[in-house]
């Protein structure tokens, strides 16, 4: 396992793609958050909503490069055929997938932390009045929102890895992942039955996971912050299990 991890980490750091994608995550997260904060109607008492959620809105965009990274970690090897080299060198396929997941987790944790802290900093700079109070890391709910958002990004990466391992194609994998993330919340809006809508928002990986960003009015959420992130974790685990099972049983 240690050697597989060392190999996967070497793979990750010896191509330019992952670094650029993580920089893309930082840039997308910070810039969208800054723009959203500057557009919001904020007063000294707040922004007519959840200031922490507003400052962290950039992950809606920032998760896209993370998803690409997660997909490419294995999808790219299927594209070039290098997966055979990998599996010839490391015949224990579960170990390979686990090593990939750990290497991905580490990279996204670093990139995601920079992105999320950058977004908070941007929020404080753009919203000096409302930001100083609501966007302090010493504030319990805000700290939970920040930490939870980094975890959310990691889980999105793992979800993407699992999907790509199952579909064995980058383009299809990214389509499935972005569909899961973006389309379910849109579809849920068209369902007029509020019970069904809340259920769908509880089940979807993005709407449930981003509940971890809420710092005010927790009672009105379809799902609690940590429970919501738990749903996203469930998605990541489920796709990794399916991907891992298919990786084990199929010919490479």
């Amino acid at each position: 396992m240690k050697r597989a991890l060392h190999a996967e980490w070497t793979k990750m750091r010896t191509v330019a793609g992952p670094l650029w994608l993580l920089l893309g995550t930082v840039a997308a997260t910070v810039s969208l958050s800054a723009v959203a904060a500057s557009l919001a109607n904020c007063t000294a008492t707040g922004c007519g909503g959840d200031t922490a959620k507003l400052a962290l809105v950039g992950v809606y965009l920032g998760q896209a490069p993370v998803a690409i990274l997660g997909v490419l970690v294995i999808g790219g090897e299927y594209g070039s055929g290098m997966i055979r080299t990998t599996l010839a060198a490391m015949p224990r396929r579960t170990t390979v997938l686990t090593a990939k997941a750990v290497a991905l987790t580490g990279s996204v944790a670093v990139g995601g932390t920079v992105a999320v802290l950058g977004a908070v900093l941007a929020g404080r700079l753009v919203l000096p009045d409302a930001g100083d109070r609501a966007l302090s890391l010493s504030d319990g709910p805000t700290l939970r929102a920040v930490f939870g958002t980094v975890l959310y990004l990691i889980l999105i990466g793992l979800l993407s890895l699992g999907v790509a391992a199952a579909v064995r194609d980058s383009a299809t994998g990214i389509g499935v992942v972005l569909g899961l993330l973006y389309v379910v919340p849109i579809v849920s809006q068209t369902i007029s039955d509020p019970g069904w809508r809340r259920l769908l928002e509880k089940m979807a990986p993005m709407t449930s996971g981003l509940a971890v960003q809420a710092t005010t009015d927790l009672g009105s959420l379809p799902i609690g912050p940590w429970a919501g992130l738990g749903v996203t974790a469930g998605w990541a685990i489920a796709t990794l299990l399916v991907g891992g099972l298919l990786l084990r049983t199929r010919d490479a």
Binding site: H6, E8, T10, T14, A16, G17
Partner: peptide
């Protein structure tokens, strides 16, 4: 079956690490 963006040495390096 190589990653076009990785150098030959680095390709061997990850294999060696494995």
């Amino acid at each position: 079956a190589l990653h076009a963006g990785r150098s030959g040495r680095d390709h061997l390096l990850w294999l060696a690490h494995s």
